[in-house]
């Protein structure tokens, strides 16, 4: 995409706000529409946009494939781990009331931790799937579109 000047400039302008918006959606999900699933998808969309316009090689320098797979597993483990922590404190699996002195605070911490796990897992899963598709040698030339 070396010749698409407008696309390149607009992408450069728009990727940071998308990433910031994803973080807002992630951590403001308790108060407004949003949460881990949406934030993960938006975060991945920003990275995929960057990859489409600037090339797979550059986006792989930002987020190398080996890290993507490990982060996806880490996200799932963070979710499960939160449940296990509440098990150790003596409550049921995924009962966040155990995480702090007051049940309401515990619920808040638990929801944030779990949503973060979901966000990391979803974002990296989407990026991993994109890497898998984009790394294959294409059958259609750029000119044929």
């Amino acid at each position: 995409m070396r010749h698409h000047l407008i696309l390149r400039v607009i992408t450069k302008l728009i990727v940071p706000p998308i990433l910031l918006f994803a973080l807002y959606v992630q951590f403001h999900g308790d108060y407004s529409p949003g949460g881990g699933f949406q934030a993960g998808v938006i975060f991945a969309a920003a990275l995929i946009l960057f990859g489409i316009v600037f090339g797979l090689r550059k986006v792989k320098r930002v987020l190398p494939p080996w890290l993507v797979i490990r982060l996806a597993a880490f996200g799932v483990l963070l979710y499960g781990g939160t449940g296990v922590v509440s098990l150790f404190v003596g409550k049921a699996f995924l009962d966040y009331s155990a995480l702090a002195a007051y049940p309401k605070d515990g619920q808040h911490y638990g929801i944030i931790a779990v949503e973060l796990g979901v966000g990391i897992a979803v974002a990296t899963v989407m990026v991993a799937i994109y890497y898998a598709f984009a790394s294959r040698p294409p059958r259609i030339n750029d000119e044929d579109w």
Partner: peptide, 13 residues
Amino acid sequence: ILTAIVVGVATTA
């Protein structure tokens, strides 16, 4: 449905 949409895109992939 929120979770089903994300699962849906993963299975579509």
